[in-house]
Structure formats: structure tokens, C-alpha cells
């Protein structure tokens, strides 16, 4: 699926405390299947994706389109089926950020989190065009 029509950050809307389900978990965290998304007004556009159960660790996520407006992902057909996406606009996309110290943060553009906005089922997807994006793309932060 080509998600060119996803280039509209305003469509990235979710409740402030939505619970998403990852049947496969995240790579390296396969056993953790449920996360709560925490969006605090003073932290926008970042959100925290926190494990529902112990050890309750978190990932920092943000819309990739705010970082790279021309970001485009070719979601493999298998994943489109798994996530039950019929329209590109059914999907919400976030990528995981790593804070590396003052003024230094990166975003993983190679493995986006794709969420079906209706079912809130999520998968960390490796797009067919992942090789054109960086694992540690620098975030412009102040």
C-alpha cells in the first residue's frame, strides 16, 4: 500500500489516553502486547507509548510527517492485510524517538508503528522502501 495520502499530520488524531494493541509486540519486546498512548498538551507533538503492564517502560513517539514531510512508506501487503487497512487514511503512523542528551535526539524512520485508527491494532512495520530511511535520523529540537 502506498501511503502518499497520509501526508497530513492533522489526521493524526487519537484520544489523549488511547490503548493500542500490538499482537506481535515491538521487535525485541514481543511479549508486550498492550500500550497506552499518553499525549500531554505541553509535550505535543510527542507522545509516550507506555507498557500497560510491568515493567511499564515507555517509548517516545512522534508523527514522522512533522519531521520529514515527504516521508512515504510502502507497507507490505501482508501487513496491510494483518492491520485490516482498506484505505491509506485508515492508518496512523508514528515513529520511535531516542533521546540522546541535551539537544540530541533521533527518530527511527526505518520501522514505523502503523496503527489502524478504528481497531487500534498496531504493528511495527518494515516498509518495502525502508532502506531509503535511517534508523537514527536526527531530530531537529531546541
Amino acid at each position: 500500500m502506498n501511503t502518499e495520502t497520509l501526508l497530513e499530520p492533522p489526521t493524526q488524531t487519537l484520544d489523549d489516553r488511547a490503548i493500542i494493541h500490538l499482537p506481535f509486540g515491538l521487535l525485541g519486546f514481543e511479549q508486550v502486547k498492550s500500550y497506552i498512548l499518553l499525549a500531554a498538551p505541553n509535550e505535543k507533538p510527542f507522545m509516550w507509548m507506555q507498557m500497560m503492564d510491568a515493567p511499564r517502560k515507555s517509548f517516545l513517539i512522534v508523527s514522522p510527517f512533522l519531521v520529514m514531510p515527504e516521508y512515504q512508506l510502502d507497507i507490505p501487503e501482508r501487513d496491510v492485510e494483518f492491520l485490516d487497512l482498506t484505505e491509506p487514511t485508515d492508518a496512523l503512523v508514528f515513529n520511535i524517538c531516542t533521546l540522546r542528551g541535551p539537544g540530541n535526539a533521533t527518530i527511527n524512520l526505518k520501522a514505523p508503528l502503523v496503527i489502524n485508527r478504528y481497531t487500534l491494532i498496531c504493528k511495527q512495520v518494515i516498509p518495502d522502501n525502508a532502506s531509503q530511511y535511517a534508523l537514527n535520523h536526527p531530530l531537529l529540537v531546541t
Binding site: L27, G28, S58, F59, I96, T98, L99, A111
Partner: peptide
């Protein structure tokens, strides 16, 4: 493996 490493680096308490 590289994505697994990246996720483990990103996770925070």
C-alpha cells in the same frame, strides 16, 4: 536485529 537494537536503545523508565 538492527530494529530490535534500536527499540532497546529507545525504551526508557
Amino acid at each position: 536485529e538492527e530494529i530490535q537494537r534500536s527499540n532497546k536503545e529507545a525504551v526508557t523508565d
